[in-house]
Amino acid sequence: MVESKKATILAVDDTATNIEVVKGVLSDDYLIQAALSGKVALKIISKRKPDLILLDVMMPEMDGYEVCQHLKSHEDTKDIPVIFLTAKVQEEDETKGLALGAVDYITKPISPAILKERVKNHLLLKASRDLVQRQNEILEERVIERTKQLAEIQDVAMVAMGALAESRDPETGNHIRRTQHYVKALAKAMATKPAFEQILTPEVITAMYKSAPLHDIGKVGIPDSILLKPGKLTDEEFEIMKKHTTYGRDAISAAEQTMDISDNFLVFAKEIAYSHQEKWDGSGYPEGLAGEDIPLSARLMAVADVYDALISKRVYKPAFTHEKAVSIISEGRGSHFDPIMVDCFMEITQEFDNIAKKFLDEG
């Protein structure tokens, strides 16, 4: 049978005889260390922390109160239980010791039975506190890990749902990934501006980034004959195509109603799906919203979506160069796009180009 490890107790007293008394009482049950001054005690503790400290008050150079105060003011020693063991018997002395953070105050002459019981009880209390602390740390680690796993599952689900819509258009390829990163890059650039720094917090930007893949989820409701038509749509066909914004919003709303709480990313997902085809001058669809009536998330997606459509090959057009796409976005300042957003876009066009190259379509 393996013997349990003995707890270590540091006895601090400037009188060697008092140290010997403590050893005589406790050495059968504990490992006893000794220090004949406060300064020596602190040196010992800095190398190896004891499980409990028995501390005399009246010592030269550095008294017990000073030693206790030093221990309780440092993060790595503040949790070591300190019991004052002293001849000072006045109530104010005991009050001062406890106020400094000591767990107990025993007066001399020492009662061996009382000393044994109080040391045992305080070591048990410390062991219990340590156990609770460790369990809390383990629980916190598990919560963090589970939260991370749920976030990853959420991200995969959003991309998968977006890909479901995009899979019906074989030429879009990595469109989802690119637009998702464009939105984040543009939002971060806008967050540096005074008008948006309080709105576009890191948490909000992350939620918009997660919701971006659902911007065209409503395309699943558009007939192939219209969605995949190689030429220009008729007016009637275009009216049907425009309904993908409403289909997308309604699909996300239906999913949201199955949840007990409203999550930011679903709120932004609805805004983006429904309003990313709106234009700053009010000439877009589905509602003809204008200016800041268009949700910020949808205005971000409008720039991202149009830029990516311009640089991508379609059945009805070749891929434009990055420079040409930037020029078209710039020309749309104040008409198609939020003017401040276009200004921010112009500051980070190279970042858009880098994202496009990183998630380049194959073939």
Rank of each mutant, 00 (worst) to 15 (best):
M259I: 11
A191S: 15
A165H: 05
P230D: 10
P170E: 14
P223F: 05
A191Q: 06
G288I: 08
T258Q: 10
N264P: 12
L227E: 06
Q257C: 13
Y182N: 03
H181N: 15
E287S: 08
E287R: 10
E271M: 14
G288K: 04
G282T: 07
G218V: 05
L266Y: 14
T234W: 12
W280F: 15
K279D: 02
M208L: 11
I205C: 01
K279T: 03
F238W: 11
V220H: 00
A273L: 05
F238C: 12
A185F: 04
K229H: 13
Q154S: 13
A195W: 01
M190W: 02
P213D: 00
A269K: 02
V267K: 08
Y285I: 12
R178F: 01
F265G: 01
D281T: 08
Y274W: 03
K242W: 02
E166W: 01
Q180F: 04
D235T: 15
S275N: 15
R168T: 15
I272N: 02
I176A: 05
K184S: 14
K193S: 07
G218R: 00
S211R: 03
I205S: 03
H276V: 12
S283G: 10
A254W: 02
K188S: 15
G282F: 02
E256M: 09
A185Y: 00
G282D: 06
L266I: 15
L164E: 14
S283H: 01
S283Y: 00
L186C: 04
W280R: 05
S211A: 15
V183R: 01
Y285H: 10
K270Y: 05
L227C: 01
K279W: 06
K232V: 15
K270R: 15
P223L: 11
K219R: 08
Q198M: 12
